[in-house]
Design a protein around this nucleic acid. Structure first.
Lengths: 199, 199, 199, 199
DNA sequence: TATGAATGAGACTTCATTCAT
DNA sequence: AATGAATGAAGTCTCATTCAT
């Protein structure tokens, strides 16, 4: 299916892996070039300098993470019979996005390097995701399954309720979580959400 | 009032400032020593090496942050007439803890260096804070002001609802927030909380 | 005649000179790089670290010294008319090898760093030299010029007799010797040798 | 018997041990002070600086080594029935002096630091030892047991013959020797000596 | 265009040496 | 006289970056 990635992509993937593992300052361009199987000057001629390479690599990483989140939200079936179960599935999947190896690496790098590279903020499509989720909730409200006066606000709240604990408990992906450590907060969050907004 | 801090403390304060500004890898011991007004070997003879210095500095930073959070939670008056206002004040104050210059620096460093320095996890007293908050909620429940079957669970949820947006919107303290960006989510969070758990 | 030596060789020559002058611990890589006319990282990328550089430099030094000794022994003419004179020439030359600037530097470094760098022992071709000399003595014995039951043993003895004093008197190359300080022991040594093994 | 050594002596012993183990450059004053159980400034106030301390420590070490050698030579019984055995015993004992832990350490330091500290040459009583041995040989010659025209010269030769191999084979005390590696050259050396000078 | 080799700058760390007590 | 703590200087090593091929 996937064609063998070209040089540029290979470099970005390598950069993402190395920066994700070692951080920006400790991730070495040498290491990246070696991992990508190219010579160092190739990296420089393609991407300028380490900072630009980092921003490009993060664009790739954020893109992947964003797509995954969008897919997860997209899969919320607003016409399901069992709404609670559907919301819980959404919550599990979102938590998984946050604590997964790759997902959490991107988050960690955004947090730790957000100050130095303000551009990283532009790569974060959080607002878009909330918009998407708000749309779903609005549909559920229209259908009379929920009573939601402000869907955007509800979307933010649902997101916070189902992901906050996974992030905190895992140390932003640093420590592995048991199934229950993910499940319990999600179920509790959905429960609270339905209590407040349920019809 | 406060006596001039001794050398050891001055070094830790300097380390916290420098690491908070530049991160662990890019924060230089030279810079820390200069900031503390001591010679570099003094730093080494006191703290061993850069990693140990970092852990010690983070202990100081976490201690400060923890104390502040504990104080904020402690100030929640469970016998207030206006419960909503009291919870909102709590939410504002907690958000402020997370996005403040020093508080967010500690959080960023915990996130970015948590992998390299697993000890940082031990400095995080999140569970203790939640216990404290759960106690307050249990009191409110006993007093009939709220209906809370599981106070620990409710504490987690309240914490998530009132702080998640401030953290996300500020880029973990990286970008300044308008008053409203803090207030609105807090008010919404408290509202949801009271809707679900209110008597 | 000799082409300008390449970078690697220049570095090794410089290292040998610096280590020979200052010892391993006090010989600085900075100094070596400057002497070789290259930048410090060039040294590191070529040779790994200071220890490996030292071992490589010693390999070069030992190689030179060994070749010289082998040549000296090789030049012993077993068919000469004046055997005493030939053996004395050999003794002078060997002594010269031991107390010469470069030769003694190698010896000093082998002695002082032999513990830390056990590999240095492998660079010492003393046994090979003795084998060579033993062969010559065996020839002389076969020709009836000497009566030598055990040529290896005799080779060791001759070597000891003609070099021990030069080494000791010069402080392993540390102090200059007068002609006579070299000549007298050599002559005495050869004399003893011929007295014992002469036909 | 021996009173508990005073502070000064304890420092010198410690210095000798540390320098002997690590060399002059790598032997640290900190380490010496710790080993001696005193504070660093005590070392400085007593001995001036590291170089002076080294020279003093070497004086102690050389003194010990010299005394031992003098005792060994002194024990050569010129009226023994079995002269060969007596000379061999002398040779073994001298070899042992050269390759023993402490003896070889002193030799290595003299070799490696002889250039920097020319004073070390004055601590070497080699000529005195040879004089002592020459006296013994002269007695043997007078008694008709040996035919020695020049006792000083013979002393030098005997010394070289019986110690050179032990020193070379052990890498100046760096590598352990088997019994035979010491014995064989000594026996061979004495044999040669007796062949040449025996009556 | 891709690379092997080179470099300037700077980081961490250690040590001999000295104050202040 | 002895010490705990402090420091200036220096050394090894690494890295982002650039020539020359």
């Amino acid at each position: 299916m996937t064609a063998p990635p070209d040089r540029g992509t290979r470099i970005l993937e390598a950069a993402l892996a190395v920066f994700g593992r070692d951080g920006f300052a400790d991730g070495s361009v040498d290491d990246i070039a070696r991992t990508a199987g190219v010579a160092k000057p190739t990296v420089y001629s393609r991407f300028g300098d380490k900072g630009a390479l980092f921003v490009s690599a993060m664009a790739l990483g954020a893109e992947k993470a964003n797509r995954r989140i969008e897919q997860v939200i997209g899969e919320l079936d607003t016409r399901t019979a069992d709404l609670r179960a559907a919301l819980e599935r959404l919550g599990f999947a979102l938590s998984e996005c946050m604590v997964s190896e790759e997902g959490s690496a991107v988050v960690r790098l955004q947090v730790s390097e957000g100050r130095r590279f303000q551009q990283l903020a532009d790569q974060d499509r959080r607002e878009a995701h909330l918009e998407l989720l708000a749309g779903k909730l609005a549909l559920l409200s229209s259908a009379g399954r929920l009573q939601i006066p402000d869907p955007h606000r509800a979307a933010r709240q649902l997101m916070a309720l189902v992901t906050a604990d996974a992030i905190a408990l895992s140390g932003t992906g640093t420590r592995p979580l048991s199934e229950d450590q993910i499940d319990a907060p999600v179920r509790a969050g959905v429960d609270l959400f339905l209590t407040a907004y349920g019809s």
